[in-house]
Design a protein around this nucleic acid. Sequence first.
DNA 1: GAGGTCAACGCGTCTG
DNA 2: CAGACGCGTTGACCTC
Length: 292
Amino acid sequence: MGFVDLRNAGLVLDLGLSVNASYEQKLEDHHQLGCNNKLIISEHHQPQTYLTLSLSADHRRDQTFAVLDSDSKQKIGTAAGFNDQISGDVISAANSSSLSNVISSCVKREREVVGGEDLDMEAKVSSSSSKLIIVDEVIDDDGSNGRKKLRLTKAQSALLEESFKHHSTLNPKQKQDLARELKLRPRQVEVWFQNRRARTKLKQTEVDYALLKKCCETLTEENRKLQKEVQELKALKLAQSPLYMHLPATAATFAVCPSCGGAGGVGAANSGFTLAMKPHLCNPFTNRSSAF
DNA sequence: GAGGTCAACGCGTCTG
DNA sequence: CAGACGCGTTGACCTC
């Protein structure tokens, strides 16, 4: 792809309303691919001598089209059409008397979008051309620049899902192939995978949350039981305190459980308070699950 | 009209 | 630095 020397070529960046027949066709194809933007070409347009740069639907919002005076190379106005980055590039490039960077950068962006198939972009320069006409797409059918909601077909969704099962991320080639197969732009495939990963993560987060919630509830219940047990032990200790006072410490701690088969020894056998004991008090720490 | 879904956008971060 | 990605958000569309 060759570019003319813009210092001598003169530059026309224009917003026009006329659409030539070949662009009408391209526009129709464009819409069949789910895009809602119109290609706008200059009224100075000549079929064989033009440069067109169109942006994808992904760069529709908040776009500013730089209108440059070809002689002074100054920005003389703006209109919807180019996003800030591109218009900034245009301005700076115009000031430095070179648009090649702008053009290649715009072309690169667009190629990324259309998968190198020039589906909705053209960048053509005739060496005999005295003017360059940069064309952008900005307006929807109804004249607004709002985005339309694209609904993927069942077949498209199914294929995307199938692909997602095999790999949740795509390399550039896979993206291109899938986009070609689905008749979508690579960017759309990319966005679908990003959103799909987000949905997967959200679902997993919900599962994790439910699990943690259940775990929390279980622990809360366990804690409640243990608190109750502590209260009972305290009450028991309080009730038994006069007897405890007459027993050796070792005997007292050893004799609390009647279910231990007389392990309590003399103290336990002789004291009447064993009737008040509960079997689970034998070892609440190693036998917690059987408590209550 | 409220609320949900989902494609698309913008921005920040990471990485080769 | 370009490209991929995550994340929060927006806006169109749908359902109730």
